[in-house]
Design a binder for these strands. Structure first.
Lengths: 194, 194
DNA sequence: CCTACCGATCGGTAGG
DNA sequence: CCTACCGATCGGTAGG
């Protein structure tokens, strides 16, 4: 077990907000709901966050950052495309599993970001996806992957990965490692040329 | 092209509600938004639907019905498990593609159903999923599928299918048939024993 | 971090 | 299908 870290009030609010947004959705969660769960008066939340949307944006960009941090060292390695993709998939799944609530919010509620945050978010996402598209393209060129539209394959891959938070449970019968490993196999088998 | 069907006002409201729920989410869509898009006063909506939740439940159970109607004849055939599963996957994907908006609402907003509807919904879903689990179990027994936890495989399969509505577009470069066919291959390759 | 409060908007109803 | 309206709740601010 990891040593329990003392949490600031701000961190407490952030964590509980993440849970509530995941469970009920961003727009169905009120600042009053959140305040009640934290044990504060609603107005007190605004000493820590300037708006409900600010909490959402911290969640979304926090996950985006983690995805980037996880993939960069992998992408710089000298490896065949399928091995690189395997590592990239495992890294992506790890981020989701280790931040299940935040990942769910990232995936479903980004559309409630305000205009400028939304723009940045979509740009980051497109950039991240293009890393995977490039890996797929290389794999096809090397004759390892099936020759299917690479954007289609990229979407398939993310589809398969992005629901992990729905059914991963620390108490479940499969460990995080097993899940990452099995799911990566599932995906790679799906695109490898037979 | 199919002959354009004359739509009742009720059908118009239903269709526009489905679009709005898909775009903005159920709880972020107000009856006033809906009325405006339809071209009515908000109160007039209540001549056609007794509540906002009733519209949601019609969307969710409508899609549930279609999934059941599509799978029943397939499930009764005498076929090897992998062929049966192939047909089941294609049928499921067809329903999603042909009802992209409603399918998105079904997948994301079912949690806003009221208590008794929610109970029925979850029961139907569990039942439907168990058909797939049984097919997978048979495939494993016949030695066709990889011997992995069948619930895990079922979740993988639905994960891979249930985002189709996100990126399927009638104007896109792949037809509905191509998508259903390719995605089914992707999934089957993922679970077939190599 | 709280009390007190704002204007806006919500789902829905009465009555025609 | 509309006018008129209800009580409840929303995100957020002023001021301490």
């Amino acid at each position: 077990m990891v040593a329990t870290k003392l949490k600031t009030r701000k961190e407490q609010i952030f964590e509980i907000a993440t849970q509530l947004f995941k469970e009920r959705g961003f727009s169905a969660t009120s600042m009053r709901d959140l305040a009640k769960q934290v044990g504060l008066e609603p107005a007190s939340l605004y000493s820590h966050f300037k708006s409900k949307e600010e909490i959402l944006s911290k969640i979304c960009f926090g996950i985006a950052d983690q995805f980037y941090i996880a993939i960069q060292p992998i992408n710089q390695k000298q490896l065949p495309a399928n091995e690189k993709l395997r590592q990239a998939l495992e890294a992506h799944i790890d981020v989701i599993i280790n931040n299940a609530d935040a990942a769910a919010v990232f995936l479903h509620d980004w559309k409630f970001l305000n205009e400028s945050n939304l723009e940045e978010f979509l740009s980051l996402r497109k950039n991240y996806e293009s890393i995977f598209i490039e890996l797929i393209r290389q794999g096809i060129k090397e004759g390892i992957f099936r020759d299917v539209n690479e954007k289609f394959l990229m979407m398939n891959i993310f589809s398969a990965m992005n629901w992990v938070y729905e059914w991963y449970s620390p108490a479940g019968s499969m460990s995080a490692e097993e899940i990452a490993n099995n799911l990566t196999n599932f995906i790679l088998n799906g695109i490898i040329k037979l």
